[in-house]
Each structure stands twice: as C-alpha cells, then as structure tokens.
Amino acid sequence: MAELQKDPITRSDFIGFTVFGGLIGAALTIPPIAFLLHPVIDVDVLGETDVDQEYQEVGPISEVPADEPVVFNVDFPIRQIYGDEEIQDLSGQGEGSGTTLTNAVWLSWRTETDEDGHAGESFRPEWLDETTEGLTPEQISEAEENLNILSNSCAHLGCPVRWVLIEGEGEFLCPCHGGIYDINGGYVAGPPPRDMYRYVDYEVRENGRLYIRHEYDAGSEYPENGPQQPYVV
C-alpha cells in the first residue's frame, strides 16, 4: 500500500486536516442552517410557543343558549419576528398595536346525545337566566363542568367548521370535506379522525365571563396525542 502513496500523509497531518476541515465545514454550514431552523429549534426542541400565555376573554357565558352553540372571536397576542417587546413599545408598535392570532371559539352547553348525534337534554345551568354576574364558587364550577369550549379548526385538516341547521337539527359541518360533529364537538361523520379540539386551559370568573389560554387538547379518545401539534392556528 505504502508505495501507492505518491504524497504520503502523516498521522499528525491527517489529524490536522480533519480538525481544520471540520472547523471550516462547521463554520460554513451551522450558521445558515441554525438561522433557518430557529423556529423549529424554539418550538420542537425548547418547547416554546409564539402565543402569549395570558388568559384572554372569550365572552359572557350567559349569551350561550341551551340548544345552540355561539362563536366568539378571541385575539391572542403573538410574538413572531417583530422583535423585543421593549423595542416594539419604543417604536410605537407595542402589545396594543401588535400582531394577534384570531381564533374562533365555539361555546356550547354539554348536551345529552344519542349515537347519531341527535341532541337531548341540555346541562345549561338554570340560574344563568337570572344571574349573569357575581357568580358563587359553586356556580363557577358547575358552569366550568358543563361548558364545551371548542376550536373551529376541523380535526381533519383545519378548515373552519360552522354550525348549520338541517331540518331543524343543528350540527357542526366542515366546509372542506364534510366532517360532521354534534353540539358537544363529538365526532359524528366524515373524514375527521376524532372529536373537535377542545381548549383545555380555561376559567369562568365571578363576572360571568369565560377566559381561555391558547392550548387545545387531543380529545378524550386520543389522550396519547398530547396537546395538538402543530397548532397552525
């Protein structure tokens, strides 16, 4: 073998070339790749999110009737490439005028349903007809137990679902591929693999209003999925 080497490389040369080449290679490739993958590293490795984790107001729960869901638009402030909050404030583009992510949140009261999704008795608290503010802790926990807080993003491919009435009976219908859910967000028909996404972090406060954070759940049928990833909206 040795005679084949016209230009013999010593061990120390080899080490030197390897280390030097490795350093040059790293210097040329790591910065641009890390630059591009910054969001992937933030989200998938460090588990960060762009969405502000404060509770945002949805609306008064007394506005939600027994037999029909109501949609509320909730704006979550997000921080994405528009820089430090302090700088945004200084430049007059702070939180107030900052970017938000709008989620359409469907609220409904838990309702008994049969296998085909036909609605039965509603669990809407009766005291809501008189009391809309100044709720007691018992009333708050009763309301929290019986509210369905649903994302309008279809569990199939994320199209916005809406409530439609067909022959007097209502259902959530996805306009893209015809996924159908009942008033509780339970799967009835179509391509979705599961129930509608539910917001898992919410609280009803004394003023009779609902507040949520931007976090969906994977649904009771698929607990192993954890919170939905990726959110997209």
Partner: peptide, 20 residues
C-alpha cells in the same frame, strides 16, 4: 411533519413570520 410545518410557519402558529 411537525418540524417541517414549524419551519414553514416560522413558529408554531400562522403569523408575520409565515408570510416572510
């Protein structure tokens, strides 16, 4: 899938980074 989408989104939700 998740990493690709986060790469495209420029975060975990649609926002200004996504458009850029």
């Amino acid at each position: 899938g998740g990493a690709t989408i986060h790469f495209l989104l420029g975060g975990d939700v649609v926002g200004p980074a996504t458009l850029s």
